[in-house]
Amino acid sequence: MNIFRFAGDMTHLISILVLLLKIYATKSCSGISLKTQELYALVFLTRYLDLFTDFISVYNTIMKLVFIASSLAVVCCMRMHRVVRRSYDKDLDTFRHYFLILASFVLALLVNEKFTFQEIFWAFSIYLEALAILPQLVLLQRSGNVDNLTGQYVFFLGAYRAFYILNWIYRYFTEQHFSRWIACVSGLVQTVLYADFFYYYFISWKNNAKMQLPA
């Protein structure tokens, strides 16, 4: 464990807490893409298949359980909760995310560490996570204005993978035989996808104005 990875995990945790805060405090999920939440639930479920077979550390196990439980809780809340689900932007959240699932799965069959059940699903979860934010970014683009908590949620979600890139660079130089090209390349693509969001987020922060995405 190194400081970059710990910072990345904490940033990821903060993004989840901000999302939960937004939904429970405002009793509204306006501006949140249900499709992105479903994709993230799928990412965690397919990545942590080894949750009960490979014990790495208490920290690792607890964080995996937190990520799985929180992503499922958000999806259930956005689908079931009678108050929250009324504020879901159903007609804006129309990204065909099934294509993202299919593309990631096909790519995982072609490019993986080992052609085994667990490795293919691990690669699938890595590719899917890189694309999972797309429905959310499209929804924000369409809705134009971004409320503070939603903006912070997406910002921290993007920042956590940037910390992981620093972690991979650090591990590359400090550990022999460290090679996680799949995660590195995919993590890079994931972070780049946030680039324009980060730009507009920074502009709104600098001008101390409400965040506006160009329509």
Partner: peptide, 10 residues
């Protein structure tokens, strides 16, 4: 043979 790393990251 290269030591195969484990999925020790989240």
């Amino acid at each position: 043979r290269e030591q195969s790393w484990s999925h020790d990251e989240l």
